[in-house]
Design a protein around this nucleic acid. Structure first.
Length: 562
RNA sequence: GCGCUCGUAGCUCAGUGGAUAGAGCACUGGUCUCCGGAACCAGGUGCGGGGGUUCGAUUCCCUUCGGGCGCACCA
């Protein structure tokens, strides 16, 4: 719409389309038109009051699609609703699920590093954030034509395994661990931290065991493998439930044999210096604390692995951009990594983006594995699914594939509840909110979509029969607002991808659902007049395409009946 | 102490240079012979405080107060 106005304007005033486009706005309400051109900035160059300018331009415009009306300092444009509505609905129906997608990313690869849970730790609620934000970023880029590579950078290496091994030797019980791996491993891990407060020498013992692990000590490697195996079984269950998959599982241990190369390179580039017995890269020129590369006992640290990972991925995937979906508390760490790569001479370091997100709190408090104050994601999902099931039992007891739908709704509710928040904000998890399926929720969007599908079923018309859309029937305020929203969808996807911000899509879907429901209540859709019915149904189906596409981007399912 | 981040309605949050700042929850009332009530409609003294830039600031800059996070051998 703005593009159209910019084109018309460029023909009447001495500005190019490119200059006009960013100035155009959407008026605060419908009476003021569909697109507005503020004349303040022209006042200076023309040495005239903006009101005058608006009036003068208005007189010069003559177009069939739009009419221009000066309103004070603004020049407001009104579109021919009938024509615009019919064109849009026809376009959406012909493109189907392709509406909103584009090819701007063609032949470009984007790597997304996300989820990355820690082995031997529970898949807790906070991991949902990285997992679903990352998944959405992958989907957004796919929709824009990019080739995407999703990588799960598992936390399967590091001193924590030294701690786990020590804890296992001291308090581990094989049988208990086999029966309930994660829970037992966490239990002894927590105990380790309690004991270490009184006996700090335990920390040294843990570091020693990690060193042994890096040196391929048989016992250490055996235990580590076992921990990884048991953890992965648990994680897979969760990913299956969430419907999330990865192109690669390449955890930290994957880079064990790729770190020497990094260290050698740092040495040859004279970036590595010794400090307090450790090897570091000085970053004082960047106003940052130094990056620790090698600990004084010679074992590696995560910065080294992240450097090796970045180099490996650049070599193997030749990415255009890479996103790290990792909590905001690691911001400094990524700035350091990027700075080191930059010092190494890799100019592509500027294409690496840390996508930080806020903490997830439970009842306003931080969750901690060590303190045992975590909420398991699986528990939350199960409760939500049960809730969905009991609501279906009440409202639609004869639903055919009830179990499947309850899962789609229950899981969707939890995912949506997370993704609707701006990612940098802290999210305060509360049972009351998570188990509420009304208002600004995933189920509300899913319900709205099911409603559009229900209309289609009741109409006994097939999609192919929805031709000859007549815009005359789509001119009511509710219809027009709905059309304007649908029209925005392609821009929404671009904006969300550019900002790596899934909440933009989530918010949009809520707006779209609310607007559809207004339309649904204000106008009767399944009317006797066949032409009117087809036109309105076409609008409903267009809405449905966008809702389903958007939900899929966020990682939610869109059942046709719920 | 230094750095980053967040302060918007009772609560949870959108909006981020422009025309009267919006949703949801909760609360109250209403819609309901009609396409699914997980719905719709109606009800509001709110941009932490103070400066500045601008024709115009919730939005940008400075400062102050308050919450959160980070600041090398954890990830």
């Amino acid at each position: 719409m703005k593009q159209y106005v910019a084109k018309i304007l460029s023909e009447t005033i001495e500005m190019t389309e490119e200059e006009i486009l960013p100035l155009l706005e959407t008026p605060p309400n419908r009476e003021m038109g569909d697109v507005a051109f503020p004349c303040f900035s022209l006042a200076k160059t023309f040495k005239k009051a903006p009101q005058m300018i608006a009036e003068e331009i208005a007189k010069k415009i003559n177009d069939s699609m739009i009419t221009a009306a000066p309103t004070g300092p603004y020049l407001n444009f009104y579109f021919n609703r009938s024509q615009f509505a019919a064109e849009l609905v026809e376009k959406v129906l012909s493109k189907g699920f392709g509406f909103g997608e584009s090819k701007v990313g063609e032949n470009k690869t984007v790597v997304v590093d996300f989820s990355s849970p820690n082995i031997a730790k529970p898949f807790s609620l906070p991991h949902l954030r990285s997992t679903m934000i990352g998944n959405a970023i992958v989907n957004l880029h796919k929709a824009l034509g990019y080739k995407t590579v999703g990588i799960n950078h598992l936390g399967d290496w590091g001193t924590q395994f030294g701690k786990e091994i020590v804890a296992y030797h001291k308090w581990g019980n094989d049988e208990a661990i086999h029966n309930n791996p994660i829970e037992e491993l966490v239990k002894i891990y927590v105990k380790f931290h309690e004991e270490a407060e009184i006996h700090p020498e335990l920390e040294d013992e843990a570091r020693l065991w990690f060193k042994k692990l890096e040196d391929k000590d048989e016992e250490a490697v055996r235990l580590w493998k076992w921990f990884v195996e048991e953890s992965m079984k648990e994680f897979e269950k969760i990913y299956k439930l969430l419907g999330v998959s990865f192109d690669h599982y390449m955890g930290e241990s994957f880079y064990n044999d790729k770190m020497d190369r990094v260290i050698e390179e740092l040495e040859s580039k004279k970036l590595l210096v010794e400090s307090e017995g450790a090897q570091i890269v000085d970053l004082s020129s960047e106003d940052m604390p130094p990056a620790l590369i090698k600990k004084k006992d010679g074992s590696s640290i995560y910065a080294t692995r992240d450097l090796a990972a970045a180099l490996y991925r650049k070599d193997h995937f030749g990415f255009e951009k890479m996103f790290y979906v990792v909590g905001n508390e690691q911001k400094l760490h990524f700035q350091q990594i990027f700075a080191v790569l930059n010092k190494m001479g890799y100019t592509w370091a500027e294409n690496l983006t840390h996508v930080p997100f806020g903490l997830m709190l439970f009842e306003s408090k931080k969750m901690s594995t060590r303190k045992g104050t975590i909420v398991l994601l699986e528990e939350v999902l199960q409760k939500s699914i049960e809730m969905a099931d009991s609501i279906i039992a009440e409202k639609n007891p004869n639903l055919a594939n009830r179990e499947e739908v309850a899962k789609a709704i229950g899981v969707g509710s939890v995912i949506f509840n997370d993704l609707k928040h701006h990612r940098l904000h802290e999210v305060n998890f509360s049972w009351e909110e998570a188990l509420n399926f009304e208002g600004e929720t995933g189920p509300y969007v899913q319900y709205t979509n099911a409603r559009t599908q229900s209309l289609l079923r009741k109409s006994e018309l097939t999609e192919a029969q929805l031709d000859q859309i007549n815009g005359e029937f789509l001119q009511g305020e509710a219809s027009w607002d709905l059309i304007l929203l649908i029209n925005q969808y392609p821009d929404i996807l671009v904006k969300a991808a550019n900002r790596a911000e899934p909440s933009i899509v989530a918010r949009y879907l809520l707006d779209l659902s609310a607007q559809f429901n207004r339309f649904y209540h204000q106008e009767r859709i399944l009317v006797d007049n066949i032409e009117e019915k087809k036109s309105k149904l076409g609008l409903a189906l267009s809405t449905s395409y966008v809702l389903q596409h958007g939900l899929k981007i966020l990682g939610l399912q869109a059942p046709k009946e719920i």
